[in-house]
């Protein structure tokens, strides 16, 4: 009896091992496509999980996109098979002028992937940071900065608010923060000297560092533009 069981077990194992050898084993994709959002070579920081992009590949029946969101540093990465891809950033995503063609559709970035590639996506934010300086001391975080308008004319956007975010983690933004200091766009007297400061609240469990960054919201644009996130130890 026992030997029959052993034989059966052996047989079952053999079937499992042999059966999994062939067709169901594809090579995993290994070409990486990475990139970031830039304006004249300067990286654009956005909020994580908010600014999305879509990648399409034609020729395989269904045409649904794969996609994800940019990181807080404005970067993205995908591991893909070689092939021709089309990338879009849907209209209304990101604190920059939508990339669109004359018919109002999202402008397509064509990518012919033949080996790993790094691409820069050139976008035009409505305004940009100049001399953003964040400092910390005596239980407070302060920021001084100036803002420079880039987009003028029909597409120009006013500044709705400027906010300093302090966070326990490197994600210092609207979603994860422990303290904020905001200033409405109308209250800014001089775009060349904006200063904000906020007390660092008591953090549980205790940690001796915080992160901070400044976000700017433009009127009528959902996503914020962020300055570099900085870490302060004390």
């Amino acid at each position: 009896m026992r030997s029959i069981f052993q034989l059966l077990t052996l047989f079952a194992v053999a079937i499992l091992v042999l059966a999994s050898c062939e067709k169901d084993n594809f090579d995993a994709p290994e070409t990486s496509l990475t990139g970031r959002l830039v304006y004249q070579g300067e990286p654009i920081n956005v909020e994580y999980n908010r600014v999305s992009y879509e990648l399409y590949q034609d020729g395989f029946g269904k045409v649904g996109p794969i996609g994800s969101t940019f990181t807080s540093e404005g970067e993205f990465s995908q591991v893909l098979f070689n092939g021709e891809y089309k990338m879009i950033i849907p209209i209304g995503q990101g604190p920059f002028v939508p990339l669109q063609n004359q018919s109002g559709q999202p402008d397509t970035i064509r990518i012919d992937l033949r080996g790993s590639e790094v691409i820069d996506i050139e976008v035009t934010p409505y305004w940009r940071f100049r001399n953003a300086l964040i400092s910390a001391g005596e239980g407070r975080v302060g920021a001084t900065l100036s803002l420079e308008q880039i987009v003028t004319g029909d597409q120009a956007r006013d500044i709705e608010s400027v906010t300093l975010y302090v966070s326990k983690t490197a994600f210092a933004n609207t979603q994860t923060n422990v303290a904020t200091a905001a200033m409405g766009g109308g209250d800014i007297a001089d775009m060349n000297s904006i200063s904000l400061s906020v007390d660092i609240p008591e953090i549980q469990p205790v940690q001796n560092y915080v992160f901070a960054s400044v976000g700017v919201k433009f009127a009528g644009v959902e996503d914020l533009l962020f300055s570099d996130t900085q870490r302060f130890d004390f």
Binding site: G64, P90, I91
Partner: peptide, 17 residues
């Protein structure tokens, strides 16, 4: 959903998604 959009290419995607 993408499934529905793929089955009927005439459908427009929702805004801001």
């Amino acid at each position: 959903s993408n499934d529905i959009l793929t089955n009927n290419p005439q459908l427009a995607r929702q805004p801001l998604q």
